[in-house]
Simulated assay, not measured.
Amino acid sequence: MFKPWLLFSGVALFAVAVPAQAQSQHGDDYAHWIVRARVIRVTPTERTGPILPSFPAAHSAVTNSYAPELDFTYMATRHIGAELILGTTKHDIQGRGALDTLGRAGHTWVLPPTLTLQYHFLPDGHVRPYVGAGVNYTIFYSEKASRGLQDAIGKTGLGLSDSVGYALQAGVDVDVTRRVFVNFDLKYLDIDTKAKLTTGSLVNRERVHLDPLVPGIGIGMRF
C-alpha cells in the first residue's frame, strides 16, 4: 500500500541531498529555488456510478472549486526541477440519475499533495515554458452527507478512500522583473476513489473517477 509519508520523506531527502551536489557541479550562477502562489480552479472530469446495491440507476457529480495553491520548485540543473504542489479544496457532491431531485448529497475536502519532475525549455529567457510529470497522493477529509440525503434515506455516514495516481503538467513563467514573474499553469491529476455510504447496517458504494483539470494563474519569485 502506498504510504503518504514516503512521498514527503522523498521530498525532504531531495531538498537536503540534491542542493549540495548541484552547487558543487554548477556553482551559484542560477536560481536554485522557485516559489509560486497561484489561484487555481479544480474542474473534475468525473465518471461515476452506479451506487450499489440500493441505487443502481443513480450516480453522483462533483462540483468545481476555486482555491489558493502554493508550490516550491528546486532546480537541480538549469533545465531540470522538482516541484511540490500544495493546496486543498472543498467540493459538493450532487445526486444524479434517480437521485437528481435530491440536489446536494454531501461534501468533502480534498488535499492532493503532488510532486512533479519538470523540464524547463528556456531557463534563461524572459518567457520560460516547462512541462512536468509525477505523482499525487489525494487525501479526502471532513466528508459529510447532506441533511437532504439523510432526510431521504436515514442517518448516513459518508467516507471516501484516499487515492494515488499520476500527474501531468504544463506551464509558463513570464518575467516582470529579474526575480519576479507571472505564472500560467495547467495540471491533470489522476484521482480515483471509492465512496462509501453507511446507513445503519446498510452500506452503499460507488466508484468515482475524478481526474480533474487544474488551471491556475499566479505570481512567483526565483531565489
Rank of each mutant, 00 (worst) to 15 (best):
T116F: 08
L115S: 11
L111P: 12
G49D: 11
A105E: 06
P129G: 02
D92L: 00
I93D: 01
L52W: 05
K187N: 00
V182R: 13
P129M: 12
V18I: 11
T156G: 08
P123Q: 08
L158W: 02
P129D: 01
G171R: 04
K3T: 08
H26E: 10
K196S: 14
F140S: 09
A58S: 01
V176E: 04
L13I: 15
H26T: 12
G218W: 08
G148A: 15
G159M: 10
D71A: 05
Y74A: 07
N204D: 14
Y74W: 06
G103H: 10
A195F: 07
A195R: 03
S146H: 00
A98K: 04
G157V: 11
Y30I: 07
V135E: 02
S65N: 05
L213E: 13
D211L: 13
Y166A: 15
A58G: 05
R222G: 01
H59L: 12
V16A: 14
S161P: 12
S54G: 02
P112E: 03
W33H: 11
L70A: 00
G81S: 05
F14C: 05
M221F: 05
S201L: 06
G132W: 04
A57M: 14
D71I: 10
Q23T: 13
I139K: 15
D192L: 01
T48M: 08
I93F: 14
M75E: 04
M1T: 06
D151I: 01
G220L: 01
P129N: 09
G154P: 10
R222V: 01
D173A: 06
R96K: 01
K187A: 13
G10S: 08
G95I: 09
I85Y: 13
A31K: 00
G216H: 06
A57E: 15
R222H: 01
L52F: 02
P123M: 09
A15H: 07
S24V: 03
L210Y: 10
S60Q: 14
T43M: 15
G81R: 07
A61F: 00
G95V: 09
L70N: 10
G97N: 07
T108R: 05
G97R: 10
V18A: 06
T193H: 03
I51Q: 13
P56S: 04
T89D: 07
T199K: 00
L122K: 13
G220A: 05
E143K: 09
S201K: 09
V203N: 13
L13H: 12
P123E: 02
A145V: 08
G97E: 09
I93L: 11
V208P: 03
G148N: 15
F2R: 15
V135I: 09
P50E: 14
V42L: 14
G218Q: 03
K196G: 04
R147C: 00
